[in-house]
Design a protein around this nucleic acid. Structure first.
Lengths: 153, 153
DNA sequence: TTGTTTCCCACGAAATCCCATGTTATCCCA
DNA sequence: TGGGATAACATGGGATTTCGTGGGAAACAA
């Protein structure tokens, strides 16, 4: 699982260290890569491992072939997704257009969200975080724990 | 299950012994870790094992992908959660920001709450405990035991 | 060439591992 | 039932490894 938030530097070449914990998640994928694309909302990037893409693919194939939404998702998700390989020290090179799109200016915040992650300009992230946090506090009652899956401890 | 309250020392490196009973709970998880994040209310930490995170993840994935609440919870729960591994003697290292957030000053109280636990500055905990106690006394009528589930103990 | 991308090596800071020790709880046997 | 032996737990400090970062050389493309 992708967890926690880490801020790493983006150098002049567009290179950024992927947090070690994130690398561990995709460690055993056939292609050891992360996949990154622009978010729908704009202003930041989304990403994940092979497993996430597989799930999106399966989801799309259940949709009607002539559904407009399907085409739109296919375009957006797969059309704009880049597969990024690690260099010897665990960095990836972010394409320039993605760096601009996310407004990454020397720093990038990796935010783990379980099955996927986001990449933010740290200042933009701080704004959204403040909002999310107060929203979550005000609505936490709506987040109920489901029964335990296996019944185990 | 995480049970009872234990106070252990936090050393200069941020290391703290996880109570042996808590360690036993996550003993057979694939990743032998505990997961810790700031509480919504602030001022203390919450934590649990892999099982708890899985439950949150499953819960969130049932929500609408574009529900604001979902995004807020994802961000707040997973974005701020740290996975902490044990050293050879059963300690974890708490990140500095979490130590500050909880006001841990040399001591940390682990409070077992069944499926999860909390980590408190012992003095703050004593305050809250006093409040909780009087609240419980004033509201004890609302605490009814449910019928026994399957007839089991 | 000229610009871009990939690979490789080097360094400092920080997190992690390892060994030693005090203390408390548990066990066993007289 | 007491008392000593044994094991489990919590703690402290030093050594080692990992991680993130910077720069340059080699391969590639235009």
């Amino acid at each position: 699982m992708f967890l926690s938030t880490t801020i790493n530097g983006v150098d002049a070449k567009g290179r950024v260290s992927v947090p070690a914990g994130f690398r561990a998640v995709v460690k055993n994928d056939p292609e050891e890569k992360i996949y990154v694309w622009p978010s729908f909302e704009g202003g930041y990037l989304e990403g994940g491992g092979q497993a996430l893409l597989d799930r999106y693919l399966a989801l799309l194939e259940e949709m009607d072939p002539y559904d407009d939404a399907r085409a739109a998702f296919e375009q957006t998700i797969f059309g704009d997704t880049r597969g990024l390989a690690f260099d010897g020290t665990g960095r990836v090179t972010l394409p320039k257009d993605l760096i601009e799109l996310a407004g990454l200016d020397g720093k990038a915040a990796f935010v783990g969200l379980g099955s996927r992650f986001e990449i933010w300009n740290p200042e933009r992230l701080a704004e959204r975080k403040a909002n999310a946090r107060s929203f979550a506090r005000d609505n936490k009652k709506s987040l109920k724990l489901p029964p335990r899956p296996g019944g185990g401890a």
